[in-house]
Structures are given as structure tokens and as C-alpha cells.
Amino acid sequence: MNRNIARAVAAVVAAVAVALPAFAGAYPLQVARNVMMYMALAITWDMLLRSGQISFGIAGLFGLGAYAAILGVVRGGMPVWLSIPFAAVVAAAAAFLLGFLILRLRAMYFSIVTLALAEMFRIVIHNLHDFTGGPEGIVMPAGVIFGGNAAALYWLTLAGLAVALAASWWFEKSRIRFALTAIGNNEISASSSGVNIFRWLLVAFTVTSGIQGLLGGIYVQSYGFATPDGVFSADFTLLPLAMALLGGMHGTVGPVLGAVLLGLVSEWLKLKIPYGHLIVYGIIIIIVILFMPAGILGLARKMSRGAEGGKS
């Protein structure tokens, strides 16, 4: 019963999301694109978090994907449409190889090294002037994909979000859920149950990084240029993280909820305080961690359980 309602709601939301360009103007579509982009990143961040690993490196893989896409076209002569999956492959491959090193790390060491990696990618791109265009960035000679058609750009981002949602759903419905949950709870007892910890972390890290790269590719083709400071901006780490925290971690619904709320608030704040609108993210992170570590979803669950308990 409950599940049917949920399905119906999901179907309606999906239909509205697909049809949005029919009745929304350019500005709402732009806002929706931003929200969906961060939502997808928030979902991928949460997917890895289910194993207990906190990555601060979202911006790194996002930016890597962005540069892979644009360089694939400009330097590699790749067709524009192909550059987007190519971005995913490059980011996934980088994560796979780096995974052999950094997935040995845990807790703060893992987090800080992912943060450092993001910086490192930025510096490398920054310094390889001749190939990447250096600090000034690089422009797509053919301009924005789809000639900048607002509806098409919207659908492209929606497709990126769909990939993230599908992957997250797969993580929840397959044995990966059991592997990551067991690892996140206690690695020692997980390994006693036959879980190959490194292997499943590598799967999760590679898949989530690949999607982050894909989103970077979509982003860069939607704007037609990339600069190191732009695509490696800390925003791409900070916003998704805050969104997933606010909505509630360890599932698909939390990050989606958080992204809608925070995404809309931040669009509004951007207009109100152009300098420093990011402060809400800082404050939301602090408040959520201190007062509602399970996010809005966790709070809702607790309240509904409280109501149930009160009845019986």
C-alpha cells in the first residue's frame, strides 16, 4: 500500500521533471539544473558514505571529468556527445587506480587525502598550460552543447541525475548494500562474514567517482568553457555534502530532499547576498551535526515513531 503510494508519487515527480521545460521559463530551468546537478553529486557522496568513508574530494573528480570532456573535444577531436561518457570513464579510471592507494586509508586520513587530491588535480591542470589552457581556462570552440537550447540543457542534466539515481537505487537493492553497510558498521566483523572490504570499497569509489566525472562533463559542456578555479571550486564538495547531511544520510531520499531545500534557498540567497551566501552551508552543517545528525528524514522518522509510541 505504502509502496504503491510512493511509486505513484515518484512517477508523478518524474513526469513533471521531464515535462518541466514545457511550462517553465529560462530562469526556473537554470535553477532546476543547478539543483539537479548538486542533487546528483549529493547522492554520489552519500553512496560512498554508506561504507563509512567520508570523501572531501567531490570537486576533484567533478573537475577532472569537466577537463576530460573539454580536452577530449579540443585536443582529442572527440565528438561533443562522446566527451560526456568519456569524462565518466576518465574519472572512474582515475578513481580506480588511486583507489589502490587511498582506499587503504580510513577515517580522517581518507577524508584529508581526498581533499588533497582535489587540490592536486587543480594544480596539475593549472600548471599544464600548453595542454589545458592553464589558469585562464579553456573554451569550447563550438560553444555550448545543443546550441545552448535551454530545454535540451535541462534534459541533459536531468539525464545525469537519472544516472545517479539509478546507481543509488542499484546500491540499495543489490548485494552492494549489504557489503557497504557491513563495512560501515564494522570492518572486522564484515571480513569474518566473507566481505572483501577492499574490493567493495573500490567498486563504490569507482562508480561514485565515475558519476561525479560524468556530471563534470555535463556541466562543462553546458557552459562551454572550464577554468581550474571554476570546475574545481570547493562549492562542488561543500554544497552536496551539506545537502546530504540536511536531508539525511544513508539513502537516496535524504540527499534528494536536502538538495531541493538547500538548492532553492541558496538560489534565493545568491540574489540577496552575492558575497558569502555560502555561509548558510556552514551554519546548516554545524546545526545538523549538532542537533539532528540523522537529518530531516531522521527527525521525521523519530517523530513518527514517537507518535506511534504515544498511541500504543
Binding site: 548485494r175 549489504f178 557491513a182 564484515a190 562474514s193 566473507g194 566481505v195 572483501n196
Partner: peptide, 9 residues
């Protein structure tokens, strides 16, 4: 309980 059945078996 499933975890062991999935990964060990």
C-alpha cells in the same frame, strides 16, 4: 544474518 550467506557462500 544474510551477510554471511551472500559473501561467504
Amino acid at each position: 544474518v544474510m551477510v554471511g550467506a551472500i559473501f561467504a557462500q
